[in-house]
Nucleic acid binder design. Sequence first.
DNA 1: AAATATATTGAATGAACGTTCAATATATTT
DNA 2: AAATATATTGAACGTTCATTCAATATATTT
Lengths: 194, 194
Amino acid sequence: MGRKSLKEPRQKEIIKAFYKIVKKEGLENASIQKIAESIQINPSLIMHYFRSREHLVYGLVEFILDRWLHIFDVKDAEDPMDELRAVLDNVFSKKWNSLFDDGTSYSLYSLAFRNKTIRQRYKHLLDTLRQRLAEMIAACNKTKQLTVKDPAAAADIIFVLVDGAYYYLSLVDDKAEYDLRLAVYKQHALKVLN
Amino acid sequence: MGRKSLKEPRQKEIIKAFYKIVKKEGLENASIQKIAESIQINPSLIMHYFRSREHLVYGLVEFILDRWLHIFDVKDAEDPMDELRAVLDNVFSKKWNSLFDDGTSYSLYSLAFRNKTIRQRYKHLLDTLRQRLAEMIAACNKTKQLTVKDPAAAADIIFVLVDGAYYYLSLVDDKAEYDLRLAVYKQHALKVLN
DNA sequence: AAATATATTGAATGAACGTTCAATATATTT
DNA sequence: AAATATATTGAACGTTCATTCAATATATTT
């Protein structure tokens, strides 16, 4: 009995508004009041759906971490090598920048060092990413299209390259230089597979 | 005439206190008042030496960025190869963790995406690091101890590996696993030089 | 229509924030 | 000792913050 719960859609709406403000003004300047104002609701409503600002941040972390998994969103192909190539294309491409705001990413990541919950979430995600890539490499081994001795180690190095690549690239303004470097880093990642 | 300026030592003292609080409580929770309290001075004194909190943050950025250059602090050797090895030892070693607090590093880095001054400082530093490493590699080429075709590209990749390595490693709690992975990443960096 | 669970508002709280300004203290020079 | 530049304090400012609580509104069920 009683009114239907709007919890899920409202929470998502609030988190998206939160994210928008974090992108523009930074995590430390994204206040409950600003979020409420931006979607024209009462600040108390945010406290109603998230118990505290801390939990709101948890929501944003979940929202961002879920996006990482989108790099595995590729067409199902019969050839596992095609799928692997598509994933690497996703990782070393502009899709990245459309998925992630760099400032937000590093802000949230920095929280992992003072907050156990966030730390565990991040660790789990990074491990999941590596594991899924390793499985794809192993699948290519099975079809003899690749002969990678240690798929897990290879996947690990590739993600190290990815993380390191974007750390520097996020400061590169020149588009041509950006593309060139990204291509070089991708080449290096591919070399790991041979 | 008049009293001698204490500007430099006082500023450094304040920045160090700032850093200490940032490490423990996070950049967003490190307030002027807390800093002042921790070294038992008046908050106004901090405003006297830094015009605003913004400038205080700039000071911390400089402080942290300067530390990076310490990875090149190695014994002068006649053999350039020895020096290069020593630098790589520094980069892939525990020295890293004594120099940098990960949470602070990523917090400050995230500011680069909303603040042009900080962005330029970071870009300049990362380029300087790469350039200096490239010079060391070139020196080894000259003595025929190395035959790296493109020292700049090699230095770039090595730092990509470093940045990416610590991104993941900073979440690894198990000491043995940490050491093992670090060794693997170092091996990969060395491979770039052959 | 009465009951009820959830949605939403609005006012109020106290705490903490960065910043200001004038006043005082302390060195150093003339 | 007078002059002066810098160091340091202390009080006060208005603003913004997260959070609380009670009150009201709106669906949905019985």
